[in-house]
């Protein structure tokens, strides 16, 4: 009985972690869906947000959650202007050029963080997240649970944004038919700017939640972009439902991989799962076009 319960506990934690992964991958997915490009610096933006939150926490004694009041708008602006002044200029040169630009950006962010914050391990962990929750004999990790609940709330808001607001509808219209969107007066480049802003806003939330759940280093970013890519590949591009399901699959892969193969090969197992899915379904589990 105890044994079954511990397995259930494991799966529950994988599910909770999966919600956080889905939120982390959202920004990558939305940009891939709208512009057909992959932002290699995606994970580094998440880590950048975590460091921003850490700085605010250390200098003003602010709770990491509250620091989002500052971090999220800053990251929105970063996304908006980076899209406007760099990505929009190289977009016409093809997806590979965007890969190279964002790859270079990823290196810049990592080494900037290394110069400012050194290579020490950091964390946003706060005392109230270290308490033990007990629910029907299960022990869900409060750090993952906070991520999961926040992810669901953010996903709900994003869903409403895409369905109800003009900007949200325009974002869905542009990839659907760029010519027709232009005809009814939607400037695709402006939409891209807002989309990149939105993507980084959500990445900022995800980055802070990841900082609450795990320690991070200046070079942690690539790990999250690879995991996020895995989520996107499983879920299909730009699909909210697919992203959530992809997140759950990877969350389970990470937790179960850690249980069966030890923490040493946990990440490797996760990457192999992603590679296997890429091999079997080069265009993602749920179809989707690139």
């Amino acid at each position: 009985m105890m044994e079954i319960l511990s397995y259930i506990n494991l799966i529950l934690n994988g599910l909770l972690l999966g919600g956080l992964f889905a939120l982390t991958a959202f920004g990558l997915s939305v940009l891939a869906g709208i512009m057909r490009v992959i932002n290699i610096a995606h994970g580094d933006f998440a880590i950048l947000a975590a460091y921003l939150s850490l700085t605010i926490m250390n200098s003003f004694g602010m709770d990491p959650f509250l620091s989002l009041v500052f971090v999220a708008p800053i990251m929105f602006a970063v996304g908006y202007f980076f899209q406007k002044f760099t990505i929009n200029r190289v977009l016409a040169m093809g997806a590979n050029q965007v890969v190279l630009v964002t790859f270079a950006l990823s290196i810049v962010i990592q080494n900037l963080l290394l110069l400012i914050f050194t290579a020490d391990a950091r964390s946003l962990i706060t005392p109230y997240l270290l308490t033990n929750i007990e629910l029907f004999g299960l022990n869900p990790s409060p750090r993952y649970a906070v991520g999961f609940i926040s992810a669901l709330i953010v996903f709900g808001l994003i869903f409403i944004f895409f369905k109800k607001t003009y900007l949200g509808k325009a974002m869905r219209a542009v990839p659907f038919d760029p010519e027709a969107a232009k005809m009814i007066g939607i400037k695709s480049e402006v939409i891209y700017n807002y989309a990149a802003g939105l993507a980084l806003l959500v990445v900022a939330i995800a980055g802070v939640l990841l900082g609450l759940a795990f320690t991070f280093y200046p070079d942690t970013g690539p790990m999250y972009v690879l995991l996020s890519f895995g989520v996107v590949v499983m879920g299909g591009l730009g699909s909210l439902k697919g992203t959530l399901i992809g997140g759950f699959i990877l969350g389970e892969a990470l937790v179960l991989g850690g249980f069966f193969f030890g923490s040493r090969f946990q990440l490797m197992f996760c990457y192999l799962v992603i590679l296997a899915i890429l091999y079997l379904r080069p265009r993602g589990l749920f179809g989707g076009k690139v």
Binding site: I40, A95, V99, I274, L278, V290
Partner: peptide, 28 residues
């Protein structure tokens, strides 16, 4: 065989993933 099935951006990330897997394998 597995990687060149992927095109463009997917290939780029696929090679990155493969490199990380091999790095982690050598680390252990």
């Amino acid at each position: 065989f597995p990687l060149l099935r992927l095109r463009g951006v997917y290939f780029a990330i696929g090679t990155f993933l493969a490199a990380e897997v091999i790095r982690l394998a050598f680390s252990g």
